[in-house]
Design a protein around this nucleic acid. Structure first.
Lengths: 199, 199
DNA sequence: AAACAATGTTGTCACTGTCCACTTAGGATC
DNA sequence: GATCCTAAGTGGACAGTGACAACATTGTTT
C-alpha cells in the first residue's frame, strides 16, 4: 500500500485512474501507455504486465464503465409505472454519460465495442433484456400496445444513445441543438416515454 | 492524368479514395499516412504536400462526407407533407450512414468534429435550420403543436443519430437490438414522425 | 532457506507523424 | 525561346509509440 517509494504499488488501478484523467483532459488521441507510465513514475513497459496491449487497457475501462453505467441505470428505476421506470433508466444513462465523458467515449468506441469482453457483453445484454421486459409491461398497460416491442426497443435505444452523444459532445451543439440542459433532455424523452397528463 | 508512371499524379484524390478503402476494410486505427503512400506507390512524405497533418486528411474526409450526407438528405425530401419530408430526411441520413460507414465514422469522430472546418460547420448548421423550419411547418399543421420546437429538434436529431450509429455498428446488435433492417428502422422513425393513419 | 511466480526495468525493434533540405517538372514571365 | 518560380515529390532525419525479450527484484510458498 506504500505510495511510490518502493518498487511495487497498486499499478493497474493507478493506470486506469490516470487514463480516465488523460481522457478527460487531453482527449482520446493523447492516451499512451508510455505517457501514463511516465506520469505515474514507473518504467515505460511496466503497464504491459497488467495490460498485455493498449487495447486491453481500453477494454478494462469499458468493462468498468459498462458496469457502472448499467448499475446506475438499474438503481434509478424506482417508479411504480413501467413507462416511468424506462424514463428513469434513460435519463440516468444520459446523466451518467454527461458525468463520465471519458468512460462514455471509450464505451462507444467502435474498435473497443467490437472486441468487448464476454463480461461486458453479458451485462449489456441483460440490460437490454430488462428494457425489453419493461417495454412489454408498459405495453400491457396500454402504451403502444399494438407496436412491435423490438421496434420500441430500437427506438428507445437509439433515442437514448443519440441523446447521450449529443449531450456529451459539445461539438454537436453549435451546428445543431441550442442550449442543451436537463429540462430539455427530459422533455425530449417525455415525447416518447411521457404520459400526456403528468409533465 | 497519367496514372503512375510519371512523378506526378492526382494525389490528394487518390489519398482520400484509398483512405476510405482502408477505413472500410481495416478500421480506423489502421489508417496511416505512410501506409497510404506505400499503397499508392509514392514517397512516405508525399501526402504532407496535400495534407500538412493527418488531422487535415480526416478533416477533408469529414468535409466531403458531410457535404454528401446533407445533399442526399435534402434531395430525399420530396413529399408534400412536412412530417413526411422530415421522415424522408432522417431515413436518408441513416441509409447514407449504412452505405458509407467509413465517412460516417470519420464524421462522428469527436476529435474530427471538434476541429471541423467552417465549411462543414456551415453545412451542418444550414441543415439543422432546414429541419427547424420543417418542424415548425409540421407544428403549424397540428403535429406536436404545443411542444417546444427546439425540444422536437433535439429529439429528432438524437433519434436519427442514434439509429444511424446502431445501424452501422454491428457491435450493437448482439447485446441490444435484434435483426436490424429497413422495415424496422422505418417503423421506429414512424413512431415519432408517422401519421397514425398511413402505414 | 530455497524455489517460485508476480511485478518492474532496461534495451531494442518496427512503425508512425512531422520536419527539413533537396530535386524535379510545368507554367508564367520577360 | 530561355529564365524564373512555384507546386509537387524525394530521401533523410528525429522523437514518440506499442510491443517484445532478457534480466532484476520482490513477497510468498514450500
Amino acid at each position: 500500500m506504500q505510495d511510490e517509494s518502493y518498487h511495487h504499488g497498486n499499478l493497474r488501478e493507478e493506470l486506469l485512474k490516470k487514463a480516465v484523467e488523460v481522457l478527460n483532459t487531453d482527449g482520446f488521441d493523447a492516451l499512451s501507455l508510455r505517457a501514463l507510465a511516465r506520469q505515474i513514475g514507473v518504467s515505460h513497459s511496466a503497464p504491459l504486465r497488467h495490460f498485455p496491449t493498449k487495447a486491453h487497457l481500453l477494454q478494462a475501462l469499458a468493462d468498468e464503465g459498462g458496469a457502472r453505467l448499467v448499475q446506475k441505470a438499474r438503481q434509478a428505476a424506482t417508479a411504480t409505472d413501467a413507462r416511468d421506470r424506462l424514463f428513469e433508466m434513460s435519463l440516468a444513462y444520459i446523466e451518467w454519460a454527461q458525468e463520465n465523458p471519458a468512460f462514455h467515449r471509450v464505451l462507444r468506441n467502435p474498435e473497443v465495442l467490437r472486441h468487448r469482453s464476454d463480461d461486458l457483453n453479458d451485462r449489456l445484454s441483460e440490460f437490454a433484456d430488462l428494457q425489453r421486459a419493461e417495454i412489454r409491461t408498459a405495453q400491457a398497460d396500454g402504451w403502444h400496445g399494438n407496436d412491435d416491442p423490438e421496434v420500441l426497443l430500437l427506438h428507445l435505444m437509439s433515442l437514448t444513445a443519440g441523446t447521450a452523444i449529443i449531450a456529451t459532445e459539445p461539438s454537436y451543439e453549435s451546428p445543431g441543438v441550442r442550449d442543451m440542459n436537463h429540462k430539455t433532455v427530459a422533455a425530449s424523452l417525455r415525447l416518447f416515454l411521457g404520459r400526456s397528463d403528468n409533465l
